[in-house]
Design a protein around this nucleic acid. Structure first.
Lengths: 332, 332
DNA sequence: CTGTTAGCGCCTTCAG
DNA sequence: CTGAAGGCGCTAACAG
């Protein structure tokens, strides 16, 4: 592997000039730059990132802290992040927390230990105060997605509004007994802020319509768990005719259960979800959309700008959800 | 941030001794080691990965090259890789190729440029000869998953056998007109080796049963595309009664289309998929299982061992698929 | 505009 | 077992 000294020698300049020519920082005579560039190409030179990083303090990588990658939300988000990162010539280092937050502390300490990234994107789980100040003290800017944290720039779907939108849609069609099926608080009380907010949106909409919210049904936030719970729910004689599911995955489980039981959607049962999951269209599922892929890109762009010129901005941006009417809902 | 010199000073030893004590390499008197460790803890010392990397040539990270992260196979695999990586105290650097391989060259050059990783895991797309030799020449060991490459250790589902298994299952139940719906070769001829092998397995099983394989139907490998194509297919008067879908996602699209058209599965239509996707159980879909999560862990373990003691092993391991009978199939 | 001189923080011979 | 010295490859001042 050629090193910069080889390039410099071949171009007949000093290491410093070669470095300047290669990096574009500092001024170099045009002719000189061309010579250096040509020499570098000839030698197939590639700067050692470790050396660059040691000298500059920059790594050229950003970290992503996320739970359960094998999930529609996170994987789609990751896709957006990866695309934007590529465009900005940044590596992305992935830290998967799995379900629940057992590994959280360990992961956090570990990636901190290595000063391996220039910035951090945290998703779904809010950063704790301690983590935020820790990050700040070692100078890694952080942003949060999906759940904010004080002192950190964040973007997040207006989950409460999403719940309200979905519920109001059902209400406007004359439904009154609307059941809310929520993503679990089972795993960890502190984690599923989004789900709790969607529930609150539901409750608010119900009360605004003069109705008493019904108790939220909870289980693991997977299509599977939803399916088996829905089987029970829909078998009951006074089964609901309208359901607001906290996520599309849950909604899909309900739809599948309805099919199994021979219920006709939307005539026997109306269902609204949240997400606009990749399968939502095939399920003909009415839902409230969010676009994690676009969010991922947006966040990376912000981070890149902030890295170049720290803004100290810690705004908490709420993203407006949008109802996507499809065929899983009918008038009461 | 404390550096090793601070630790050494606090412990009253030299940098060299501190380094030895901290890394465990080289012998240090027990009492000395304790003192160093205590000093390091007191100072909250963390070695700079850039410096370590520069000095040792190791980065402590492995790269993952994958298409379309927002896909069941890749995201599940990634989950397994991330878990194993955490266990081995390795970072994982993610390179998303998106759909198709447009970014491929760029990504490849880019991660090569930075000698940012100790090893590479490549998925789905086979590495080209040029890439393999390139990797070898700069000394990054690579493994492949999902599609092998000459000169590289690889693991991969026996896709042809998967196709055969699925088809034979249908045949054994008396079906004769079995249609195969395949993941697209539409995107890029050279990429979807797995799909082509599954098709071949189907054809082989048909011929072995004395039947002429029917032409494979192709479209984008998403549930959505599958849904709309299946709508057409199943509306036709001589619609098939048995379908072998190349992936569960495709199978799910077909199942949804059947529901839309009022066909009863499995009585009017039998469907078999491949993958054992997270939703397969909820769809009650008979399928051929593969377990990418487990594969991910296995591959990382191998890589870690190989990093410690290079084996030169370039075996191509075929993973045996397994039929998972569920309710989407009935006798003809 | 360009070369020289110091490091960045750690590991690793080589002596002792 | 331990310390001193040099180097990994690059960039950042500072002169010139």
């Amino acid at each position: 592997m050629a090193v910069i000294d080889d390039v410099a020698r071949l171009a007949g300049v000093s290491k410093a000039t070669a470095s300047r020519a290669l990096s574009g920082r500092g001024s170099v005579a045009d002719a000189t730059r061309q010579r250096v560039l040509k020499a570098a190409a000839a030698l197939d030179f590639r700067a050692s990132p470790a050396a660059v990083s040691l000298a500059t303090g920059r790594t050229g990588a950003i970290g992503v802290l996320a739970p359960a990658i094998d999930t529609w939300y996170v994987s789609t988000l990751l896709r957006g992040i990866a695309e934007a990162a590529l465009a900005h010539d940044l590596d992305i280092v992935l830290y998967d927390l799995g379900r629940g937050a057992a590994m959280r502390e360990r992961v956090f300490e570990r990636f901190l230990q290595r000063h391996h990234i220039d910035a951090l994107i945290s998703t779904t789980f809010a950063l704790t105060h301690r983590e935020v100040s820790r990050l700040a003290s070692i100078g890694i800017p952080a942003v949060a997605l999906g759940d904010g944290a004080a002192g950190v720039r964040s973007w997040c779907l207006d989950d409460e509004r999403a719940g309200t939108l979905a519920t109001e849609h059902l209400l406007s069609l004359g439904h009154r007994r609307i059941v809310h099926v929520g993503g679990s608080t089972v795993l960890d009380e502190s984690l599923f802020a989004a789900e709790r907010l969607r529930e609150r949106g539901y409750q608010r909409a119900m009360r605004a319509a003069g109705l008493e919210p019904m108790p939220t049904l909870l289980h693991d936030p997977t299509a599977d768990a939803s399916y088996s719970h829905a089987l029970e729910l829909l078998r009951s004689p006074d089964r609901p005719r309208a359901v607001f599911a906290a996520t599309d995955e849950i909604a899909m489980g309900i739809l599948l259960a309805a099919r199994t039981l021979g219920l006709r959607v939307p005539f026997d049962l109306s269902v609204v979800g949240v997400d606009d999951h990749a399968y939502a269209a095939a399920f003909d599922l009415t839902t409230v959309r969010q676009d994690p892929r676009e969010h991922g890109e947006r966040v990376v762009d912000w981070l890149v700008a902030d890295l170049a010129a720290p803004s100290g901005d810690t705004t908490h941006t709420l993203i407006d959800p949008e109802l996507v009417p499809r065929g899983s809902v009918a008038p009461a």
